[in-house]
Design a protein around this nucleic acid. Sequence first.
DNA 1: ACCTGAACACCGTTCAAGT
DNA 2: ACCTGAACACCGTTCAAGT
Lengths: 225, 225
Amino acid sequence: MRATEQRPYHHGDLHRAIVGAALDVLSESQSTEFSLRELARRAGVSHNAPYKHFADKRELLGAVSAVGFELLAKRMADATKELDSPRERLAAIARAYVCGGVNNPALYRLMFGGYLGGGQDNGRPAIERTAAHSMKALVVEAICDGALGRLIPNTAANARTIDGAILIFWSQMHGLTLLLVDSLVGPSGKIEELSEGVLQGMLDGLANCIPEVPDGVWVGPPPAE
Amino acid sequence: MRATEQRPYHHGDLHRAIVGAALDVLSESQSTEFSLRELARRAGVSHNAPYKHFADKRELLGAVSAVGFELLAKRMADATKELDSPRERLAAIARAYVCGGVNNPALYRLMFGGYLGGGQDNGRPAIERTAAHSMKALVVEAICDGALGRLIPNTAANARTIDGAILIFWSQMHGLTLLLVDSLVGPSGKIEELSEGVLQGMLDGLANCIPEVPDGVWVGPPPAE
DNA sequence: ACCTGAACACCGTTCAAGT
DNA sequence: ACCTGAACACCGTTCAAGT
């Protein structure tokens, strides 16, 4: 196969090839402890050709992480595209999030696991921040539009309420994903069931515990039955 | 200092010394990417003496993780020792958990981050499971005793309800800890405030969303105000 | 039983040199 | 501008040998 390929001296798009190989190896081995040399071998170049495209392994992993954020943002957008109910939209975002993590834990951990920049010296690539922000925007939108049973205008006065809800929502998803991934809860196999219970419970709990805002309007059943 | 120590040929307690050195290096560097050789240097032995005590680096990290679980279990026990209110006990457990993670993220990730055994070949050391179970027992106790506003007898009939509450509670703590650690939320500095909001919101939310159990008895204000 | 020294096959990273 | 080959200082791990 390689003999017939007649690869020229210049690879053409080594940058993309290396990132792709890294994504493959990461997904297969579920570990970030692969070597750059291995990726170079897969791409059919010398063991230090990658250094023309990435300063070091950390930078390469940053690029891989960025791809992961793009994939996740796309899945979230797809999942909510045809849904009208804000609560369903928020639930769909959560499902896409948890699913993405469970389907590729190593990638999820690379993205959210603090390997890059979390308290370390330099921050993460800008593209990562962008993806995280667009994800956050989707959540804010759903919450403001009534996902918790009432409209919460996205005003400065409500910022603390909204931020509080997002923090609960996101940490719940994040924690659930990692507990599932690490098999720290329940017998695996009924992941969907566990997720759905936590998800609906959290949405109801959020609806109940968020403080009233002056300009909020109930659009769902109030929490007191 | 070393010249006066006159360390004999046999170290005496190299096992403990290596684990201690690993804990130090892990806490200082906030990374598990230190080398066994470095630990051996710190302990003043040859670079492969550790192999008489640990089959490989993974096994050493397992021992370090076990120490982390013991420390966490102890802090949780201390935090609840003088508290009577079940809700306060549960809140104290949560604070101890989040605090432990925030104070030593690398250790927390080693313990809960799936580095060991999470989907990999062999499971984690038994001592880890033991510590995790005793932690879980503390949570179950507080929930059954009325932390959520009602007594929930720890019977087989209520197992699903209790497990559901634990899953929500634990994933919320886990997620919050990691979001704080990775600075993925809020400006750092007001960690306590963020945690307290999530914690109280979660407890109220849990109280509201857990299904009724036949033999449950309200001991706090019912969720509907 | 515990530790050492030499050795092997790997890394990440650098640098002068090739196309 | 992009890639190669040799080189450096490190690893984890093994093994025969020392105390």
